[in-house]
Design a protein around this nucleic acid. Sequence first.
DNA 1: TACCTTCGGTCAAAATCGCGTCACAAAAAA
DNA 2: TTTTTTGTGACGCGATTTTGACCGAAGGTA
Lengths: 226, 226
Amino acid sequence: MKPRILVVDDEPEAVELVEFNLKQAGYAVTTAVDGAEALKKARAQTPDLIVLDVMLPEMDGFEICKTLRLDAVTAKVPIIMLTAKAAEIDRVLGLELGADDYLTKPFSPRELLLRVKKILARFQSEEKPKEQLRFGDLLIDLPRHIVTWKNKPIEMTATEFKLITVLAQRAGRVQSRDQLLRDVWEYDSLIDTRTVDTHMRRLREKIGAASKHLDTVRGVGYRFVE
Amino acid sequence: MKPRILVVDDEPEAVELVEFNLKQAGYAVTTAVDGAEALKKARAQTPDLIVLDVMLPEMDGFEICKTLRLDAVTAKVPIIMLTAKAAEIDRVLGLELGADDYLTKPFSPRELLLRVKKILARFQSEEKPKEQLRFGDLLIDLPRHIVTWKNKPIEMTATEFKLITVLAQRAGRVQSRDQLLRDVWEYDSLIDTRTVDTHMRRLREKIGAASKHLDTVRGVGYRFVE
DNA sequence: TACCTTCGGTCAAAATCGCGTCACAAAAAA
DNA sequence: TTTTTTGTGACGCGATTTTGACCGAAGGTA
């Protein structure tokens, strides 16, 4: 899947230029023209990289950067700052803001692409999404599509696997039936929410003792514990 | 939880129209017909947004707006002004009053909804709702749907959890039984207000020593302290 | 093609648990 | 004191979840 990049700038021409070049290079680009939009989209999409202009109306790039760092969802998304003044560089890259790189305007598309590639390479090698989820004797192997209990494989259908995966990935957090329908069944809200119960039952039957991980929270939904 | 909107207008028809449309769109709506009521409800409920008519008897919208901004509780609640004259717009949106948007009467419901959505999106993305509420040894974890006292979990039903959450989120401010019925039970005011008492009792039993946080304010309602 | 198996969704009982109400006791206010 | 308001215990209905059974769709096999 293409790496997703969020470009934040209030000048339409600048946005267009950057967007064009990044798309050309094979990235999925979304844009924002102000701080509010940027924060919203960053939260919603958790892009792989954010290109952020410092000069923005209302909320400037520094503030956006700080705010992004405070939110767990976006705290680790690398940021490339676009700044007009070379004097600001120290502040941008320092501890106070913690951007990952910078570019001074005006810059060439080639420069930008180089930085983007460099940053993405660094981050992608470091933290990839977990391929295995382990809870005591229970192991969920995502790429292999296998669940084991005490090293014994548990036969499971596709829906059941997705259900336990979604629950385990949000371990501890209660998921409503509607949420599960959205995330497991993928926008088929024309399905009866009671269906979730049935699948939970089948899941519990199959995983046997491991079903202690699956909590019912009456009136709310289900939760994977521990 | 639905975003809460306070609609302030002295004309019953106008209120009804706005209320109907906002409710239709999935918002929780309360109304006020004059300045005094508006300020009172705004303080008590801290809605997510206030729709405020400028033309009001006694205290007009400008004054209400200023007063709301002076009170720390309501200072940051976004306000959409309903104004008759285009000439007033600058004053409304300027520093003097600090409303967040305006609509000139007459306006279409669709227009209003658009503004409401826009404003709410902006503010919600800026300040994320807290996921945990901590008061000394008492911890309320919203996504996990768990309450702990000195790190020991306290078993709790869905309603009890919602009750303590609503109270804790408005810590320090007294909540009337009617308010609690609205916010915890969500518009089932066909329920006896004394039911709140029963749930408070069960809550106090369950949380044991932590019930020192739950004050009874005789003749008014309940309050979460500290 | 016909037959069989499996999976996913629906439905309806059964079991469970929470909720709302009432009546009365207790406490505070008048 | 009387009156008003809140706390408490108990009860039964009803909502929610669990469980078992059913059925159609999809896919594999002969």
